[in-house]
């Protein structure tokens, strides 16, 4: 058996074990008391109790939800696909806005040691700020909850991109620069034929970190601003005490995050090089 086959088999075993243990540890929320009085029935005591759902229950719900991912029964009941699409759209908007700004700016900072040193203190102060701390300010200035969440994504994804781009540009080997110089390249040509391709792997590392952070932050941001999106969905299902849906959406958040990360890592393969 090859290593890959072994690992796949082990993965499946872990899943099976997880399902069995999960089923054993969770109930279905049925109550023990039978023969309810009329009052008790009216109070909903005949209904199942709120409970942590087992894997099978979640799987059933997932099947149901994923067969109609885009249904729309009003503001409080939209399909999981719709909610995820809203979140992805916001993440993309904020993320690409920061790509447009951070990559060229990082490039300039990396090209000039003076700039790099001058901007360091500001970047170091701004970087550790929780992106959600910007939310009140964003809401007040932008006066739109959706755009505010886009802004929050923008502000959280800009730092890793900026720092990595600057670092990548700064650490281009002198030998490569010398090749460009001896070929009499002007700064423009040097930037695009030597520095950019040399720095791209580092830039992509920044892009990947930023994407990861963006997806973490959007859930929290949407819990705050509400309306639509996967973060709102989770919080809404919590308010409905529908824990199966909460667990299901947690799972979906993980899957989408994985896909986003894989997409960037796949793209970066085209720009990576080995020395």
């Amino acid at each position: 058996m090859t290593e890959t086959k072994k690992s796949i088999l082990l993965s499946i075993l872990i899943l099976v074990a997880f399902v069995i243990v999960g089923e054993l540890l969770t109930g279905d929320g049925s109550r023990t008391k039978k023969n309810l009085t009329e009052y008790e029935t009216l109070m909903g005591l005949g209904e199942k109790q709120a409970h942590v759902p087992g894997p099978v229950e979640v799987a059933k719900l997932a099947f149901k939800e994923l067969s109609h991912p885009f249904y729309d029964n009003g503001p409080n009941d939209k399909g999981i696909g719709t909610q995820l699409a809203f979140s992805i759209l916001r993440v993309m908007a904020g993320y690409f806005l920061s790509v447009i700004i951070a990559v060229p700016l990082g490039f300039l900072i990396g090209m000039s040691p003076v700039f790099y040193k001058a901007l360091q203190p500001y970047i170091q102060i701004l970087k550790p700020i929780s992106p959600l701390a910007w939310m009140p300010l964003a809401l007040f200035v932008i006066k739109d909850s959706i755009l505010s969440s886009v802004f929050v994504i923008f502000i959280c994804s800009i730092w890793p991109m900026l720092i990595n781009t600057a670092f990548g540009v700064m650490s281009v080997k002198t030998d490569f620069l010398n090749v460009g110089k001896t070929l009499e390249m002007n700064s423009f040509k040097m930037a695009f034929t030597i520095i950019l391709p040399a720095a791209l792997p580092t830039i992509f590392t920044g892009l990947r970190i930023s994407m990861g952070i963006s997806w973490l932050v959007i859930v929290a941001a949407e819990m705050l601003v509400g309306g639509t999106g996967i973060g709102y969905y989770v919080w809404n299902e919590w308010n409905n005490l529908d824990l199966a849906s909460v667990v299901f959406s947690i799972l979906m958040i993980g899957i989408v995050g994985m896909v986003l990360d894989a997409a960037i890592s796949y793209t970066s393969k085209y720009f990576n090089y080995q020395e």
Binding site: V179, E184, A198
Partner: peptide, 29 residues
Amino acid sequence: EKPSLERGVIFQNHSILPWLTVLKNVTMA
């Protein structure tokens, strides 16, 4: 005073650009 195409340099550690193919490294120059 500054580098020139009239003075070609072969560097100690070859300095071939690793993201270009062999042919592209030469055509670029």
